[in-house]
Design a binder for these strands. Structure first.
Ligand SMILES: Nc1ncnc2c1ncn2[C@@H]1O[C@H](COP(=O)(O)OP(=O)(O)OP(=O)(O)O)[C@@H](O)[C@H]1O
Length: 690
DNA sequence: CCTTGTCCGATTTTT
DNA sequence: TCGGACAAGG
């Protein structure tokens, strides 16, 4: 109250308007409020977990709008799709929909796509460029390696991929500066040249080319500087060099750049993230207002104490004093399991039980893990208990053959030079353009530095083929041309065109035929049909073009949930993707040596980052937290012995209790608890109208 | 040219 | 456990 009245004179009237009903400055503590009110000039918010950094960003957006700033001039960038979505949802609670919508809240990559779709032609690409995902790029690199490597030379596609990615992230034009001879260097050069002929970009190009565009073309830079007057970046500790450069270039002389972050939550070092971006913020944006937040509003002291004790083990960190006004709360449980089956069984049945005894909702629970693969067992057990759940991220959906094929078909229609997509579907279903023809066309395309599609059109090439092959090619290229025209006819419903096109290809019949069981065939067919419908919805509701839709798919844009499915069910999510989120009850599974910390990180000497990862996981919990580890875990189909993570030893006895699942299950339930449970059950039954 | 079968090798994290 | 790479037969 006191805060509110003392500041009242400075609050513009707009803030009090009904539109802003959800936005009240007095929901912020004085430091947070200072950050929100600092709208001009560079602003650095460096603060620990759960101190309200994201809240400050969203409140600041709302405040700017209340001050009369055009929402379209506000840019808020996050690192993951999930975080972007979370922020949009939080903003939706503070401002009216028509004001929230024009605000740009996206990931760096999505923002870059938007910039490039408008002006990439200035860099010699065409505006209908394709975006290649991880699988597409590794596939392409693999092909280039086989084509380039001499007999005695070997290079793993994955290794080349990460070298190239690292080079691009640093803005180098060689794999290692100065190296133009090695196989990797040759592969890099060819890769980049071929991408350009195919009119395609990879994820790193999105950042790199946008950077080029902004630095080399003043008009473009100024256009985007005019567009975005207020920049905000969440999780700034995870930005890489190129991303920092992008921010620098988007900011004009006014330097209205607000960044928030926490060096203890830096978990993307493996992707080139540089903590120095935030720790040396002053070097890039002179004289910033610096705000430090120390009160944690999220977690109980047991959880916060556990997290603090753990992170103290990291050397070279800036010490922080995080405190919470919340009570101690239940102790953090560390539970030993015999194997991963028991782990999944234990946590899922406990969730089912707590839903009854504690009246907790399913969406209050989250299961966090190191690897996507770990979610599968938990999913199976949740299904058995009929507990609703949702898996965040994980690529299984996009890994499905039929989804890749569908996206490739669509991609070829929009950009015929997209070789990776063309070669994927050129003979699926079989249409008489087999490997040997494709091989020759590819050779010619490499030789002439043109796309495969262009090579196929080549008169000389065609005359060198068998009559059958030549006819097959003529038929197929003509077919694509015709559908491309239909798709690009103004006012056409693209989803309908796509559906008809896929129908004409005979793809679905081929897909079903190639499946072992009828059930599998129907499932796969259904996925394709569903995806087209998904696009149809997007086209009708949001006016998205097929291109927009494909971009969303490639960037793994989070699907907006409709009201019923919104946030319902237990959340299954990796530790990385969980950053920035919070849940009342968290289960953090698989705390075994070799998994967390991961074996790889030990070899690479990045155990500190693994510790931060666990720190991030622990600090997602609001009320209760359980950490589990297994004596055995199924790996490659057979059980492998495992031991508790070395991090467990670093947790403070004061806030942690150690348990064993088998003993817990066998132990007689205390009479007190039984009474409590039956009481809760009875209450539940009595309150349920029948 | 296309289909079918067998064997082997892979698994961090995200855009 | 599962999917991709390769080899052999229609
Ligand atoms: N001044 C405040 N009063 C009450 N609750 C607050 C306040 N500030 C933040 N919170 C609450 O604390 C929780 C954490 O906030 P937020 O997610 O913004 O933190 P954060 O700093 O972004 O966390 P992290 O870095 O761990 O992702 C949220 O539930 C938020 O609503």
């Amino acid at each position: 109250m006191a805060i509110n009245s003392s500041l009242a004179p400075r609050v513009p009237p707009a803030i009090l308007s009904p539109l802003m009903s959800g936005f009240r400055l007095f929901d912020l503590n004085p430091e947070q409020e200072r950050a929100v009110r600092t709208t001009e000039g560079p602003l650095l918010i460096l603060a620990g977990a759960g101190t309200g950094k994201t809240r400050v960003i969203t409140a600041r957006v709302a405040f700017l709008i209340a001050q009369g700033v055009d929402p379209a001039q506000i840019l808020a960038v996050t690192f993951t799709n999930k975080a972007a979505k979370e922020m949009r949802e939080r903003l939706a609670k503070l401002v009216a929909p028509e004001q929230a919508k024009p605000v740009t809240m996206s990931t760096f990559h999505a923002l870059c796509v938007r910039v490039l779709r408008q002006d990439i032609d200035k860099l010699g690409y065409k505006r209908n460029f394709s975006i290649y995902d991880e699988g597409d790029t590794t596939g392409l690199i693999k092909k280039i390696i086989t084509r380039t490597a001499a007999k005695d030379e070997k290079l793993e596609a994955n290794v080349a991929k990460s070298l190239i990615s690292k080079a691009k992230g640093n803005g180098w034009s060689e794999v290692t500066p100065g190296d133009e001879q090695s196989l990797a260097a040759a592969v890099f050069a060819k890769y980049q040249q071929e991408l350009k002929t195919m009119n395609a970009v990879d994820f790193d190009d999105l950042l790199l080319l946008t950077y080029k565009l902004l630095t080399e073309h003043a008009a473009v830079r100024e256009k985007w500087q005019r567009k975005f007057r207020y920049l905000m970046v969440d999780e700034f500790q995870d930005t890489n060099r190129l991303q920092l450069e992008l921010v620098t270039n988007l900011a004009d002389a006014r330097q209205n750049v607000a960044v928030v972050g926490d060096d203890d939550q830096s978990i993307y070092g493996w992707r080139g993230a540089e903590v120095s971006n935030i720790l040396e913020f002053e070097a890039h944006f002179p004289n910033p207002t610096v705000v430090k937040l120390e009160q944690n509003y999220r977690s109980t002291n047991a959880i916060l104490g556990t997290a603090n004790a753990l992170i103290k083990n990291n050397p070279r960190r800036r010490p922080k004093q995080l405190w919470s006004a919340h009570e101690g709360g239940a102790k953090v449980r560390v539970i030993g399991m015999t194997d991963d089956r028991q782990e999944a069984d234990f946590i899922t049945s406990e969730i089912a039980q707590r839903a009854v005894t504690e009246g907790a909702k399913h969406e209050d629970f989250a299961v966090l893990f190191r690897m996507n693969a770990q979610s599968r067992l938990v999913e199976t057990h949740l299904r058995e208990l009929h507990i609703p759940y949702r898996v965040v991220g994980g690529s299984s959906f996009f890994d499905a053959r039929e989804i890749k094929d569908l996206l490739a078909y669509a991609s070829v229609l929009l950009n015929a030079d997209d070789d990776v997509s063309l070669l994927r579907i050129i003979n699926t279903p079989a249409r008489g353009i087999g490997p040997s023809v494709v091989e020759r066309a590819t050779e010619l395309s490499v030789h002439k530095r043109c796309s495969v599609f262009a090579a196929l059109q080549d008169g000389e090439f065609r005359s060198g083929l068998s009559k059958r092959a030549a006819e097959a090619i003529a038929a197929f290229t003509g077919f694509l041309d015709a559908w491309e025209t239909k798709l690009n006819t103004p006012l056409s419903k693209q989803a309908e065109v796509l559906r008809a096109f896929i129908g004409e290809t005979g793809y679905l019949a081929d897909l079903k035929r190639s499946c072992k069981t009828q059930d599998e065939g129907l499932k796969r067919e259904n996925k394709v049909v569903e995806m087209i419908r998904w696009f149809e919805d997007d086209e009708e509701a949001k006016g998205k073009s097929l291109r927009d839709f494909l971009d969303d798919m490639m960037l793994r844009e989070e699907k907006e949930e409709d009201e019923e499915s919104k946030g319902s069910g237990v959340t299954l999510i990796t530790l990385h993707a969980a950053k920035g989120l919070e849940f009342p009850h968290v289960y953090l599974i698989g705390l075994e040596e070799g998994l967390l910390p991961h074996d790889r990180s030990k070899m690479e000497g990045t155990v500190d980052e693994e510790r931060r990862l666990l720190y991030v996981g622990i600090t997602r919990a609001r009320q209760t937290l359980a950490l589990t580890w297994c004596g055995h875990r199924i790996k490659y189909g057979s059980p492998m012995p495992g031991t508790a993570s070395s991090f467990i030893k670093e947790l403070p006895a004061e806030w942690v209790e150690h348990k064993n699942a088998t003993q817990m299950l066998n132990a007689p339930v205390a009479a007190e608890t039984v009474k409590g449970k039956f009481g809760a059950l009875r209450a539940l039954l009595e309150n349920t109208p029948s």
